[in-house]
Design a protein around this nucleic acid. Sequence first.
DNA 1: AAGATTGTTCGTAAAATTTCGAACAAAAAT
DNA 2: ATTTTTGTTCGAAATTTTACGAACAATCTT
Lengths: 96, 96
Amino acid sequence: MEVITEKQKQLSRYAKALSHPFRIYILELLAQQNCCYSGDLTEIIPIAKSTMSQHLKELKKAGLIQGEIEAPKIRYCLNRKEWEKVQALFKSFLNV
Amino acid sequence: MEVITEKQKQLSRYAKALSHPFRIYILELLAQQNCCYSGDLTEIIPIAKSTMSQHLKELKKAGLIQGEIEAPKIRYCLNRKEWEKVQALFKSFLNV
DNA sequence: AAGATTGTTCGTAAAATTTCGAACAAAAAT
DNA sequence: ATTTTTGTTCGAAATTTTACGAACAATCTT
């Protein structure tokens, strides 16, 4: 693994976060609109709330989203700063 | 899964293909330089040839690369046509 | 204080991913 | 014709991913 650069690792981490259609969908919603409550997402995407929680956790782990508590709800938003890193890395990788 | 569009599914498939650092590396090599023999890749990336074969299989499955037989070697190249689709999908997703 | 709402965590299960070495296949070189 | 080279496929094992319901925690409402 020593041949792999940090950029390559980071890009593959981002790609892994994007490797599920639900997570793509969630990110599109958050990127296009503004923030979203987890419950709203569960109404749009028909999965158990625990499963949704897992997907949101994955996206959080990758740094792509962040959640602000608005008790008893949680308002999830895109992490715009991290999003720019995603854009930059993919842009240079795809050289678009 | 009915809420998911074909575009979202395709994007997540591409992302899954990119979700391993070795596969990122392989694609970078093929995109920047020209084609490559599998054996050359195994010299650069220190993994068993069977493992390399699996990664190449994944990339082939996603349509990103193609192999031409130059017996007894196999010359792997980027599938430029599919690569453009990847660029287009990610571009519109990241809206860069 | 008791109940309702919201979302996470836990336990579980099935499926997929990653990795390796051994065995195999195909064609070139000797 | 046999050996060498190259890469795939096959088994096997460890890990990760995906999914669900039940139980739990935190906060708001009544």
